[in-house]
Nucleic acid binder design. Structure first.
Lengths: 311, 311
DNA sequence: TTGTAGGCGTTATCAG
DNA sequence: CTGATAACGCCTACAA
């Protein structure tokens, strides 16, 4: 592999001049430029990206930490982040975490090692207090409401639409309601917000027996429906359209009357099932997150989600 | 930011010794190790990833070129590639291309610049002959049948199941069949294979009027159904379950009799619609592609797809 | 306009 | 066991 010194030697100019030519900088004579370019073409030379990064002191890479790969929430968020990143000349590194604190800590360490210019957590298991120290060095962005913790954040305001979802169930006369939740309520801000909305609308807390935890995908939805069907619920607030679809499948297979259902994510399946859902506008959140990551923005930015009524 | 020289100076040892300590290599006295570690902790030192990469001569990064972000084919392929990559200590860079030849060429150039150790094309618009020259330097992997072109490849053998799909339509007495195809037949191997299967089963080529091109997502499916409904088809071989779902929606809205339909990708929607589909086993393909990228494997590897009959 | 020399931060060789 | 010193390949004051 030819390097800049080879080009310098063969063209009869110095590395400084060669560098100027390949970076299209001023103060180069036409002759020098021609001579250098000729050798560049002959040797099929291209500058080495790693050396450039080291010299420049940045990677132009944004790490995106994602707990799971097959969940639509993360797919749409990553997609919008990627789009925004490329529009600004940044690249995106995919960082799967499976909600493993050790892995997340590892990524944070890599940020310190300058493996990335910034890190976006689409979600995280690590307490915010563990993340905070890293926010000083590189840029760290989280995609949920960090409360009063001073970390850059872009997130949807879910509270409002969760209330609307509960109201919809109430208005359609659901008497016994169950909820599909991601992970336990203590760990997940989503769960907390959903349970809070229930309390607000129905004036009482949702009994634990009617909360199904750790529901993350379509298959989980099928299993979760099994649990709730035993208790004869007539309404389910789910945490995803595709997840709700899994539940529908269970009810259909058992030839049971379908409970009223509310989805989330505004996916294709809620359209097919004619089910109300919530659009969290992750495209917008993703772009905001990236702008925070590259320093175009700072602080905390929230996007209002939209309840889509359907029945 | 502290660097290895700072540690050397403050600990009273040389950079060589410091390097040995932080990399946990032999031939270091306990005293030296203790002294170095103490300073490392004091200064909160971590080695710089870029400098390491430059020194080592590799990035431990695999670029994954993906034409579109919201298509399940690419999502599942990227996911399995990522999983396999991390299992081997590699990272994954997401490279969107929108089937733009200039962008694809750009990524190939970046490969030359050693921005990635290898490049996986989940699909590409660039002719294979343009890609071939780069396959010499870094590792290039394509995810479709490269025919007789000598490039590393992992792909599904679709021919067989496309024939099965056509036979299914025939067995269920579809008389007038339409097809949803991605891009034009000349450009897309998928289209060619689907049309070939039709010819094989029905003994004649599918009239162009019954081919709807450039159908890539759910909305496209809705539009495409509009076109085919005018011609009163009673069977549609689609190129995706979610895409087929878009078509179903159109037929339902118009209160038209639903044609027989075959999907692809084995997504949730085909389950919900009780529609036969084809599983291309992209998880397997993704892992093979990555193993090719990191040099564990070489050559061309094909995976048989599976027809899932449902009605 | 051009070139020299030093810096970016590590790793590796090889003599001590 | 330890340490100078030379890579890795590029950029950029500063000097000429």
């Amino acid at each position: 592999m030819a390097n800049i010194h080879d080009i310098a030697r063969l063209s009869g100019f110095s590395v400084a001049t060669v560098s100027r030519v390949i970076n299209d900088r001023p103060y180069v004579s036409p002759e020098a430029k021609a001579a250098v370019m000729k050798v560049v073409r002959q040797l099929d030379y291209v500058p080495n990206a790693m050396a450039r990064d080291l010299s420049a002191g940045h990677t132009m890479t944004i790490g995106v930490v994602t707990p799971m790969r097959d969940h639509p929430y993360f797919t749409s968020l990553t997609n919008s982040i990627t789009r925004a990143a490329f529009a600004r000349g940044y690249r995106v590194m995919l960082l799967p975490s499976q909600y493993d604190q050790a892995i997340e800590a590892d990524y944070l360490e890599q940020l310190r090692m300058k493996a990335y210019d910034a890190l976006i957590f689409t979600s995280h298991a690590l307490p915010l207090t563990d993340i905070l120290p890293y926010a000083k060095t590189g840029q760290v962005v989280v995609c949920h409401d960090p409360g009063h913790v001073a970390v850059n954040a872009a997130f949807t305001d879910r509270g409002e639409t969760y209330v609307e979802g509960c109201q919809w169930l109430k208005a359609h006369h659901a008497k016994k309601i169950g909820m599909f939740l991601p992970r336990t309520a203590k760990l997940s801000a989503t769960s907390q917000a959903m349970l809070g909305a229930f309390q607000q609308v129905f004036g009482e807390a949702l009994p634990e027996a009617l909360q199904v935890l750790d529901v993350m995908n379509n298959e989980d939805g099928y299993q979760a429906a099994q649990q709730l069907a035993k208790q004869h619920v007539d309404g389910i607030f789910t945490n995803g359209d595709d997840i709700a679809a899994g539940a529908v499948q269970y009810y259909r297979e058992q030839h049971l009357a379908l409970p009223l259902m509310v989805g989330q994510e505004n996916q294709l399946s809620s359209q097919l099932l004619n089910m109300p859902t919530i659009d969290h506008h992750f495209r917008v959140v993703g772009e905001l997150a990236l702008r925070l990551a590259v320093g175009e923005l700072s602080g905390q930015h929230q996007v209002a989600s939209t309840f889509i009524s359907r029945a």
